[in-house]
């Protein structure tokens, strides 16, 4: 993640410098930068996420700004959409099933995201080319060894699927707050990779674990994610509420009994004394 950020930083800085050369005298305008990332989720939706940042003291997200999304077709730029950035400076274009998006003969899609600038902020743009990849995740058991298999394929210009070879696949266990990386393997010539299932990881109470396989921030394919669930983890004991104890809602029983015995002993005597008073009153 950090590496890609750095990489994008350099690229966009370079573009910003070259783009801004002609406007050098208007130095008062702030420098803007566009960062573009491509995501394909486990539900196969594809999104292009563009982030617009502006240089104040450091770079900060720039919200409420219009970003223009283009697809490069041969030499023409086809406008896909105009989207305003949110407060985090992000604008998201849905790529899946967009008929305006076309691939070049090599199977690449080239996007251009442009910020046209304003009186206060300089214009910025960024170009990104990706290939449409896909991950399939499956589980299988041979004898007693449990494994995960992932096959990576890409869809070319002619909608033919071909395997992606020698690409890094990262394997994660889905946690509450993060993904825990337990394996990293390259695919073979058939675009297939197998890793051992992390059987010592605790799952939920029935042992269900969510496994995530990813091609992560790849220069050609962006980020592609596949997900699968299976009950091969170690089941955990369901957490039950402790009923009685010093730190619980109800007191330990010996405490309750002691208290009742003590209080009732004292109050019985009080009542007896009150009874004596009544007897005094009656014995006049």
């Amino acid at each position: 993640m950090k590496n890609v950020m750095k990489y994008m930083l350099i690229i966009s800085l370079a573009t910003a410098i070259t783009a801004g050369k002609g406007l050098a005298q208007k130095a008062v305008r702030k420098t803007a930068r566009v960062q573009v990332e491509y995501f394909k989720g486990p539900d196969k939706t594809e999104n292009l996420v563009a982030t617009l940042i502006v240089k104040e003291k450091r770079y900060v997200p720039f919200g409420e700004a219009m970003l223009y999304f283009y697809c490069l077709n041969d030499t023409a730029r086809i406008l896909l959409d105009k989207i305003k950035t949110n407060d985090a400076g992000k604008a998201v274009l849905t790529v899946s099933n967009n008929p305006k998006i076309t691939k070049d003969p090599e199977g690449k899609i080239t996007f251009i995201v442009e910020y046209k600038g304003s009186s206060a902020v300089k214009a910025a743009q960024r170009k990104m080319a990706i290939r449409q990849g896909d991950l399939e995740l499956s589980f299988f058991q041979k004898d007693s060894t449990k494994s995960i298999e992932v096959s990576a394929t890409e869809t070319g210009a002619d909608n033919q699927r071909t395997p992606i070879a020698k690409v890094n696949i990262l394997f994660y266990v889905q946690g509450t707050f993060s993904l825990y990386n337990f394996a990293k393997e390259k695919t073979d010539e058939n675009g297939i990779v197998q890793v051992a299932f992390p059987v010592d990881m605790p799952g939920d109470t029935t042992g269900v674990l969510t496994i995530v396989a990813k091609i992560e921030e790849n220069r050609t394919y962006g980020t592609i994610e596949a997900k699968g669930e299976i009950n091969w983890g170690k089941p955990i004991q369901p957490v039950k509420e402790k009923k009685r104890g010093l730190g619980d809602t109800d007191a330990p029983l010996w405490m309750v009994y002691t208290l009742i015995v003590l209080l009732s002993a004292v109050w019985f005597h009080y009542l007896y004394v009150v009874y004596m008073m009544i007897k005094i009153k009656l014995a006049r």
């Binding site: 005597h269 007896y272 004394v273 004596m276 007897k279 014995a283 006049r284």
Partner: peptide, 18 residues
Amino acid sequence: SFNGNAKQNRFLERGLTI
């Protein structure tokens, strides 16, 4: 209604002792 009769004194003493 205390008037110091023997019975009352006995009850009172019992109460006080308790």
